[in-house]
Write a protein that binds this DNA or RNA. Sequence first.
DNA 1: AACCACATTACAGAAATCTGTAAGGACATA
DNA 2: TATGTCCTTACAGATTTCTGTAATGTGGTT
Lengths: 222, 222
Amino acid sequence: MFTKVLVAEDYEIANQGIIRILNDEIGIATIHEAKYCDDAYLKFRKAYNEQQPFQLLITDLSFREDHKVQTRTSGIELIEDVRKTQTDIKVIVYSQENRPDKINMLFDKHKIDGYVCKGQNAVKELIACVEGVYNNNTVFPPELTNTSADNLMVHLDDLDIILLEELAQGYTKKEIRIKLKKQKITPNSESSIDKRVSRLFDDFKAKNTTHLVAIVKDLGIL
Amino acid sequence: MFTKVLVAEDYEIANQGIIRILNDEIGIATIHEAKYCDDAYLKFRKAYNEQQPFQLLITDLSFREDHKVQTRTSGIELIEDVRKTQTDIKVIVYSQENRPDKINMLFDKHKIDGYVCKGQNAVKELIACVEGVYNNNTVFPPELTNTSADNLMVHLDDLDIILLEELAQGYTKKEIRIKLKKQKITPNSESSIDKRVSRLFDDFKAKNTTHLVAIVKDLGIL
DNA sequence: AACCACATTACAGAAATCTGTAAGGACATA
DNA sequence: TATGTCCTTACAGATTTCTGTAATGTGGTT
């Protein structure tokens, strides 16, 4: 089993929970923790330079920024930076994210070894994931394979989320169009935005924009 | 210090984290955990009936049930049911919720003894909270005391709430007018509704109806 | 090349939103 | 009664929303 693991997770309680699992349930002796991406990277570098590298990185995706200035604001950047230095390190992502395409992207693009979704059964999943990754397997979360139940979920891509957020902030379609153009995000015509939002109406069975925002707020998507 | 504590939290990792803190940092011997509200209540009843009651309940507010978010009162219901049976039990809520009015409501209406906000510094806060509650203090979260100044309240009467709810459900002003007339609620002219909603725009600094609903959803008013 | 499926974009029109102004009613006070 | 304030209501007009249709572009297949 792994003997030296780094845990990057900004929520302290979750951090402690992971450590407890690794320690008590799996029996990993050396576990280091970090509350910030930068901090995690420093600990990783130190261990690497001292010829006692970590064998496994368990990281969250989103880190809240408080007072500390962070050069790495997301777990993805951390993963990329770590992999650049130590290609053979195993990486498990532990995150709230449950959008299949997002999770698949992590496996495809960032070559992570495992993913555990924050949730009710996270302990069992985490244990299985660590063991699977130790045996050189790629461990997908049950949420991803059990698409039967969760397939009812509406597929939302990044643009959908952006539109929902902008609408929730009270911007008009015209303002959103201009914003998208400025950020070079396509499609950005008012017509395409209309089409997108109309599709969201259908997906969420919303009568109008206000209703739509209320629904996604209730679902916790925004 | 407390010797017997019940932890109700559906996220297993967070659950484990809390237990670790209580165990390793505070030195509480007997800690029971529950992933569901009902389960927590059963464990509580059993201990109470066996004359070995819990001295402290640490609970989340929202519990997921079968993948579906049940954001409403489940944690609150647990607190109420527990208090009905054992009035002297101490209650600490550990939740993501950071809306001042919501948290204040817990102290005012449900007489909780402490609140810890899920976050980066939750460990220190949790330890301080448990110790404070043990000393019969009421422990407010730092988030609450810091933002107490900008906690400006807008007075909303019944009609305001009705209008907000109808708008959030996607009804047009015309539909709302007809509904109000049918229920003999005055004022019910479209003009009056316009005026009301415009005043709400000012109160909440909203750009339009969609923005307004998003804001009040975030504030937990709806 | 030809074809098809699909996305983007432009445009148009009916409906709804939002913001004014103005008229009338209710109510209190002098 | 007269006056002023506040609320309700009607109405108007500019803007935005929402839903169509149609033209064009794009990528993949045969």
